[in-house]
Design a binder for these strands. Sequence first.
DNA 1: GCCAACGTTGGC
DNA 2: GCCAACGTTGGC
Length: 160
Amino acid sequence: MTKQYWLMKSEPGTFSFTDLKACAHSTDHWDGVRNYQARNYMRDEMKVGDLVLFYHSSCPEPGIVGVAEITRESYPDHTALDADSKYFDPKSSSDNSRWFMVDVTWKEAFKDIVTLEKLKTVAGLKDMKVVQKGQRLSIQPVTAEEFNIVYKLGMSASLL
DNA sequence: GCCAACGTTGGC
DNA sequence: GCCAACGTTGGC
């Protein structure tokens, strides 16, 4: 199976890339996804070893801050069963989970953030969903070409 | 199955 | 905080 690439959004005020690094084994489960398309990507397509562009949203400088890796494939999102959780969904049950999550492990921080503003200026990235207006999906597939372009930008941005 | 109302996302 | 874009819900 060929390695796949993804972009995952998180609000740094809630859970930042640095927060992920600080977790035990620099790994955490990606809970709280309550969008069917994003769920389907996690449940059906994400595989161990896939690489993730970690995107910070709803913050002063939105953009991609580093790379993470999928380290566990989908399993039921227990927060949907917790009545005290803000992610509680009464329509989900333990024997028939509606929502799923994966485990994500911190891998490498970019030297400099690749801002949304920057992404919009790069010709090879014009088809990325994240640069398109009105695209709110929190988990998006990324091509290998796009991943490589972003990676190079992140690792050499200080030289530009 | 249509569609209006409502809630959420996320850049600005 | 505003608001455009989009997804979901629920009455019919």
